[in-house]
């Protein structure tokens, strides 16, 4: 998560602003737009293979947190971009007009008016995308994360595993070691709670700011 959040939020917002406010409407813009929409629908296993090739092999990271994080970032980036675009587009035109009308530059208008107004939407979209990343296992299996009983990873260059993976192997081996069944059950609860909290936060943010505009 330490990798996924900054990577997706920064690249996601940047791309959305570029697509909404800088690039000219036209063929290039619509090609990029279509591709992003398509990427959002690509099965996650494909991202896993891409991550394996690019991050683990080509860049030689090995199967560490950084590689996994970047892979998951790729996976949810299209979703974050689309959500952020939606949010930027829904900022009322008359607000940016007022800002330009007082001699503000484009960047000042974006930073002081558009981004603050779009932020709730961007946050909601990002959190929902993030909760998808937490539940993902397939792409991480592909980049070859070790399955069972890892020491807690201390930094982004350590090896790691995913909660769903832990659950799967603990359940599988519960016939060998009795405690594993309990461990698996506990982990499931942790995972569900995490997802529940993330999604509630997203809904709360949305409700809190919806009344404002």
């Amino acid at each position: 998560m330490a990798v996924v959040i900054p990577v997706t939020v920064i690249i996601g917002i940047g791309t959305a602003l570029y697509l909404e406010l800088y690039i000219k409407r036209g063929s290039i813009q619509s090609i990029i737009q279509t591709n992003i929409a398509n990427l959002a629908g690509v099965p996650s296993i494909v991202y896993g293979i891409l991550g394996l090739t690019v991050f683990v092999r080509a860049m030689d990271f090995g199967n560490i947190v950084l590689a996994g994080g970047l892979t998951l970032s790729l996976l949810i980036l299209p979703i974050v971009i689309v959500a952020a675009q939606e949010a930027v587009r829904s900022v009322p035109q008359h607000l940016s007009e007022a800002s330009y009308g007082m001699g503000a530059t484009k960047w000042q208008t974006i930073r002081r008016i558009i981004l603050p107004a779009a932020l709730p939407g961007i946050l909601t979209g990002s959190i929902l995308a993030l909760s998808r990343a937490i539940g993902e296992t397939a792409p991480l299996t592909v980049i070859g994360i070790p399955a069972l009983l890892m020491a807690h990873p201390g930094g982004i260059f350590d090896k790691f595993t995913a909660l769903p993976m832990q659950i799967y192997y603990w359940t599988l081996d519960s016939s060998l070691v009795d405690e594993y069944a309990n461990l698996a059950a506990a982990t499931i609860i942790v995972l569900l709670l995490l997802l529940f909290i993330l999604n509630s936060v997203a809904v709360l943010i949305r409700n809190k700011f919806q009344q404002r505009l």
Partner: peptide, 20 residues
């Protein structure tokens, strides 16, 4: 420079449009 022009020539719009 339009920014310069718009600081000299201010505009009030048809619909009140304060910032949030």
């Amino acid at each position: 420079r339009v920014e310069e022009l718009r600081t000299r020539v201010g505009m009030v719009f048809q619909k009140p449009n304060p910032f949030p």
